[in-house]
Design a protein around this nucleic acid. Structure first.
Lengths: 151, 151
DNA sequence: CTAGATGCAAACAGTTTGCGTCACT
DNA sequence: AGTGACGCAAACTGTTTGCATCTAG
């Protein structure tokens, strides 16, 4: 559970004004079970602040993500990406330009669970994303990111 | 490299008419380096069939995905999902309802590379998705999938 | 007092759909 | 010949932006 006071100081540390809206948006975005969508967060926030604007929710989520206060479940939420590699494989994903490169399954030691999975979940396959920066992006170091690769 | 003939029989095996457009769309979608976006595929196809419609590309990509001829890089490409869990962790992802549950990092044996990563890629962290069906979705077995969870 | 936040509406990007016409089987 | 595919435009969903107003610091 997150305390209002913590959120306020968190915002201040990141140079963000601690408005009421922003606090509630953050709390609802961080609330369990997590992984909420903007619409879901908007719905939750509206229960507390009926007059809130959806645009405000989006603006704040973007701010939180940019400042690292929230993470995104998938870097590829914008647009569909399709693949035909029928062999099981993993991905090297560049957090900067979003490019994807395949990694053969045998390039990783087999993934092993230490404990039973939550009851009732039937695992079918394991997909590993190795997140980092690709060669091009680490070369053109910290500069403003160029256009992203869509292949 | 994919041969026209193979593609035709692949389509026939799945009960799909082997139109010229469909063949080119499939070839361009499957072409290296893979992971192409619909727009990118559209651009490639247009070089061969200038009059192609973007809707046709989308319709076919959806068909290919539904029939399992192509895979999607991320199941969450539709909408943003946000998360606040600051500890490193992994995900159990239901391929049916798209729900996500966290798995503590220690629940998996550490991920180990067998070989060096491609030159120049700087790995920062590893995100594992365990794909399968959640309890609710395996219970309400093969029926038509209900509304998806957005949290 | 001022930079930055909010709310609204309009603009955008990505994707899907309806429908008339055309083509594979 | 008939079912399904194509092309076009319109509809939709998810997200961003411009601008006037308001508020935290």
């Amino acid at each position: 559970m997150i305390l209002h006071k913590d959120v306020r100081s968190l915002f201040h540390r990141h140079g963000l004004a601690a408005t009421h809206q922003r606090q509630v948006i953050y709390e609802m975005a961080a609330a369990p079970p997590g992984h909420a969508s903007p619409e879901a967060i908007y719905a939750r926030v509206r229960r507390k602040i009926p007059g809130i604007s959806l645009a405000t929710v989006y603006k704040n989520l973007r701010t939180f993500i940019d400042k690292g206060l929230l993470g995104q479940v998938s870097l590829h939420s914008g647009s569909l990406r399709v693949e035909s590699n029928p062999a099981p494989h993993h991905h090297l994903v560049c957090t900067r330009c979003k490019s994807i490169v395949d990694l053969k399954e045998e390039d990783l030691e087999p993934i092993r669970f230490r404990h039973k999975l939550p009851h009732g979940f039937r695992a079918q396959r394991v997909a590993v994303d190795i997140l980092g920066t690709c060669k091009a992006c680490s070369t053109r170091a910290r500069g403003p990111r160029k256009k992203m690769q869509l292949n």
